[in-house]
Design a protein around this nucleic acid. Structure first.
Length: 502
RNA sequence: GGGCCGCUAGCUCAAUGGCAGAGCUGUGGACUUUUAAUCCAUAGGUUCGGGGUUCGAGUCCCCGGCGGCCCA
């Protein structure tokens, strides 16, 4: 950064006029002994509080009450002896400030006109009145810059380009109410999830993000290095193996909401770092976790809207209430293929289906993996309403218990909504001997060049060997949940998403 | 990784291969009731970077950067 942007000899030289003007105003204030960034302002009410306190005032009315308010100047309308400014608060509330010659005097009014630009933060103290047009206003007795903005605000009436919105989210937050709403929406949903789990006696824990062995999912990790230990470390791809250690230790209901990191693609539904809820419950199974997950999502929707119906950004209403559809993987796949396939169907038959439907198949894939690919290509896009898809092939579920009835299947479901995967759950595999065999099979895949294959985690196996109770476990992407609740892209749900260097 | 589209003033966008423009913003002026105030005047450009074709390139070609969409 410092190499590419050396500080010029005269910083003002290359700046656009608008920034030069604002910098010179700052200089002038300092020269006049006026602090452009004062330590505070005697605020007696937020703009929202003023609006709440004074409703239905008559037109052109003076209350006799004095308040001190602060806000960012988003509109300015100056006339000769009377100035109007619209202030906006952090919560988006707007209130008009008025400065009149007869109230503040000629010097103060002239200073306002000469100093205050769009985007400045100001404090105004004065009487609460309504204007002749009925607009609730603070008629200034005094005013002060609380922070001089050196950069001009973008045009308030045209949307910022998508790139600017993401790269300069602080500007997006200033000018676009929906950007601020998203921050609140996300906080509401995360808080709701935490409360849902706490109500059910789950304990929240934090497990390592820097790991010696990455595990718990099929994904490429980020690699980093510890100088003190002189060893490479991985940023976690999932908290699963540590949460299970906690279950072994007797934390029977445990969850974590935090970031995972996967060194993979970046697009409208994938971010290299993403927040996830993982929860484990001893003596439960994937059926229990399905009920839990549905309730937690429904409670989050309720926290947001007061009902189970959420409204997307494009105006469509989505009803997440009631029981959710539940199907089996091979059931919906058979339906889509028009021919029954099962976990025992020969891979040659599956390959024929793949060819027929133009699904490219890696010859290294086993029948389970191929069936899953067919499912993702042919079925997933149609899964708009929340749908649990159950009973995956054991082959692709190395951390999942074998199905209690059907050999070759695993007790796993994926939850789909609006055509994308929202979450997953297992009846957890707790037999350490079988777990070791599964890891061994994964190691073969890794040796064959599969970068997503799981690594053998000896310490995790040692924990399992002390005895892990039967348990159900689930994971759900927080960003994905926000997408499902709002209909927005993942980069809109993340406050500061990763972007390439400018 | 592949294909397509885009990148022009502070912001949002125009411009048949022929003088680089508009709106808002800014600057100067007028205005004591404005609501994206209005009126008059006015400034503002490395057209993402580099190379090429051409009398002449924002525009056409090549390489690179960044972003978006679709596909894998």
């Amino acid at each position: 950064m410092s190499e590419q942007n050396p500080v010029p000899a005269d910083p003002a030289e290359d700046l656009p006029e608008q920034m030069r003007v604002r910098r010179s105003k700052r200089d002038r204030l300092l020269a006049e002994g006026v602090e452009p960034y004062p330590v505070g302002y005697p605020r007696t009410a937020t703009l929202a509080e003023v609006r709440e306190r004074y409703t239905d005032l008559p037109i052109d009315h003076a209350t006799g009450d004095t308040v001190g308010v602060t806000g960012r100047v988003i509109f300015i309308r100056n006339t000769g002896k009377l100035c109007f400014a619209t202030l906006r608060d952090g919560d988006g509330t707007e209130l008009q400030a008025m400065l009149s010659l007869d109230r503040v005097g000629a010097d103060s009014l002239a200073a306002w006109k000469a100093t205050v630009d769009l985007g400045d933060l100001v404090g105004v103290t004065g009487e609460v009145i309504t204007s002749r047009r009925g607009e609730l206003s603070v008629l200034a007795a005094s005013w002060q810059i609380t922070a001089k903005a050196l950069r001009p605000l973008p045009v308030a009436h045209k949307p910022l380009s998508e790139e600017s919105r993401v790269r300069q989210r602080y500007v997006d937050l200033i000018v676009r109410p929906q950007a601020r709403d998203m921050v609140r929406t996300r906080a509401t949903v995360v808080r709701s999830l935490r409360e849902s789990l706490h109500r059910r006696n789950y304990l929240e824990v934090e497990t390592p993000m820097l790991q010696l062995v990455h595990g718990g999912a099929a994904a490429r990790p980020f690699v980093t290095h510890s100088n003190a230990l002189d060893t490479d470390l991985y940023l976690r791809i999932a908290p699963e193996l540590f949460l299970k250690r906690a279950v072994v230790g007797g934390i029977e209901r445990v969850f974590e909401i935090n970031r995972n990191f996967r060194n993979e693609g970046v697009d409208s539904s994938h971010s290299p770092e993403f927040a996830m809820l993982e929860a484990y419950q001893a003596y439960a199974d994937y059926d229990v976790m399905a009920v839990n997950t549905r309730e937690w999502v429904q409670e989050a929707a309720y926290a947001l809207t007061g009902s189970h119906v959420v409204t997307h950004a494009d105006g469509t209403e989505v009803d997440l209430g009631g029981e959710w559809r539940s199907v089996t993987l091979y059931g919906v796949l058979s339906e889509a293929l028009g021919e029954e396939v099962t976990v025992d169907t020969d891979i040659a038959v599956l390959r024929r289906h793949a060819e027929k439907h133009d699904v490219s198949a890696d010859p290294k894939w086993g029948p389970g993996k191929l069936a899953e690919e067919l499912f993702e290509e042919l079925v997933v896009p149609s899964l708009q309403a929340p749908t649990f898809v159950r009973d995956y092939p054991e082959e692709t579920s190395p951390l999942t218990r074998a199905h209690r009835d059907t050999p070759g299947l695993a007790e796993k479901w994926d939850l789909y909504v609006q055509g994308f995967e929202l979450g997953t759950a297992y009846s957890e595999l707790v037999d350490p001997v079988v777990q070791r065999e599964r890891f061994a099979a994964q190691a073969v895949l890794a040796a064959g060049g599969d970068a997503e294959a799981m690594r053998l985690d000896e310490d995790f196996l040692r924990a399992m060997e002390y005895g892990m109770p039967p348990a159900g476990g689930m994971g759900m992407g927080i960003d994905r949940l926000l997408m499902a609740l709002t209909g927005l892209g993942i980069r809109e749900t993340i406050l500061f998403p990763l972007v390439r260097a400018e």
